[in-house]
Design a protein around this nucleic acid. Structure first.
Lengths: 115, 115
DNA sequence: ACTATATACTTTGTATTACAAAGTATATGA
DNA sequence: TCATATACTTTGTAATACAAAGTATATAGT
């Protein structure tokens, strides 16, 4: 049986873009982890199916860099405590930079693939 | 001074795509290392500026996987010996698979970025 | 009440890969 | 002769997607 190249290439091609996509989703308001996973799945047309072990480290990195900020909510009544993440001003500015990088790279790729 | 996010994201976003682009360039005929670096630079519009320490490990991986084959040439007269790489049938088939992955991922990214 | 399941978050370890950097060797031009 | 460009090799580092295992709470089913 042949090795599944596609699977590994898909994993590699996601590198860098997932943080960008998380920042983008947070532009429409604060969200908690599992909510981000659901929206990522829906809005990408089932293409980005994040595991929790993938998302949370991304959120921690973004928070360490000051691109998002978090706040615990719930736990008072009977709700499960949830950690809500919101994008910061610094994060919004970084998102614009990262989008520009994506446009550049994906444009260059298509130029070679179609050339 | 602020950290240069763009630089790191660019590096991450290249992961996986460089092998695809090398395979694509080899579709138009066998090429040696530095020739691939030059064509990658020209045909991408100066976007993909590979260092030799980046390209050669890619070629070795592709060869290990049987997606390209190599052959030394020159060295008989006064030419510098060059190792020419050509894409194999297996490599051509893999390229189609990898391109499909790229279309899928980049399409999903744009769907979220524009949504 | 008890159990199973879903939700929610955390942490550890692995594999992969772009890149810097240093090294070897040959050809060409000043 | 010496500097530079070409050509290939190898080592080490940083970054990140993912699997996997763990903790805790709420809800539904029996």
């Amino acid at each position: 049986m042949s090795y599944d190249y596609a699977n590994n290439y898909e994993k590699q091609m996601k590198k860098g873009v997932l943080e960008m996509l998380v920042l983008k989703l947070l532009c429409s308001g604060p969200k908690y982890g599992y909510q981000i996973i659901r929206e990522m799945k829906e809005k990408s047309g089932e293409i980005f199916l994040l595991r929790d072990g993938t998302l949370y480290p991304i959120l921690y990195r973004l928070e360490d860099d000051g691109l998002v900020a978090s706040e615990w909510s719930g736990g008072e009544g009977k709700q499960v405590p949830r950690k809500y993440y919101r994008i910061t001003e610094k994060g919004a500015a970084a998102l614009e930079d990262i989008r520009a990088v994506w446009q550049r790279i994906s444009g260059g790729v298509d130029q070679i693939l179609e050339g």
